[in-house]
Design a protein around this nucleic acid. Structure first.
Length: 102
DNA sequence: ACGGTGACGAGAT
DNA sequence: TATCTCGCCACCG
């Protein structure tokens, strides 16, 4: 089980309608200082159909920085479909939607 | 093996 | 939660 795989497995545990932060995912898999690698893992997401990568945001509830291929918009739309409302086009209210963990 | 890379985070300003 | 800096460390060639 590589670090990447652990990230993907953890993402699958995030309940629908909730979100997690990169740092939180890193913490939950026992690598609290690997938030950056979590983001990287999701950027190379091998199976977008089965991995809820869109439920992972940065610590402010903002969507990821890079918008190559329009992924920010895709992520926003996916989250809206799960009933999550946005403060602005790419920000949600973490205190309401943040996943509590396991 | 080694170093560049990066969807991050915390602290300073 | 504005902007900058720096530490972080798995992955890949």
């Amino acid at each position: 089980m590589t670090f990447f795989e652990e990230v993907y497995e953890m993402c699958k545990k995030i309940p629908k309608g909730k979100v997690a932060t990169y740092g939180q995912i890193a913490f939950l898999i026992g690598k609290p200082r690997c938030a950056r690698q979590v983001g990287w893992a999701l950027s190379s997401c091998p199976d977008p159909k089965n991995i809820p990568w869109h439920r992972v945001l940065n610590r402010f509830g903002k969507l990821h920085q890079s918008d190559v291929l329009g992924n920010m918009h895709i992520q926003r739309d996916l989250l809206k479909e799960e009933g999550i409302s946005f403060i602005d086009d790419f920000t949600i209210d973490l205190k309401y939607y943040l996943w509590e963990g396991l």
